[in-house]
Amino acid sequence: MELQRIAHALDADFICGPDDWEKISIESVVASDLMSDVLMSDRDDLLLITSLSTEQSIRSAGIVGSEVVVIANNKTVTEGMVELAGDQGIALFCTRYPKYEACVRLGRIMEP
C-alpha cells in the first residue's frame, strides 16, 4: 500500500522525508514504544508507529530498514530527530491519534 493512503487515514502531519514519499510502499506495521521489540522485526517495507519521540526511534527504524516513522499522540518531535530522519532518508510523520487508535485505523484500510 502506498504511504499516501496511510498518511491520509491517520490524518498525519508530514514533518520531513524524501520528495517522493507518497509512493513509498508499506507492507507491514510495527507499533511499539520498546525499541528492542522493533529490532526483533524482520519484515520488509515496514512502518513504525511509536509514542517514543526520541532519536532512538528514528535510529531503530533505520536499523531495521524501515523508511517511515509515525509519532503517535502528537508528541513533540525534536530537531535532532528531524536531522537524523533526513540523514537516513526516513519519512517522519506525526498523528494526533493515540497508538492504539492509529493501529485500528491502519488495520481497517490494510485488511486484505
Binding site: 520498546l34 528492542s36 521489540d37 532512538q56 526511534s57
Partner: peptide, 11 residues
C-alpha cells in the same frame, strides 16, 4: 528511552 525489554542479548 525505549530499551530494557530484556531482548537485547537474545536478539
Amino acid at each position: 528511552q525505549g530499551f530494557g525489554a530484556g531482548m537485547g542479548l537474545p536478539n
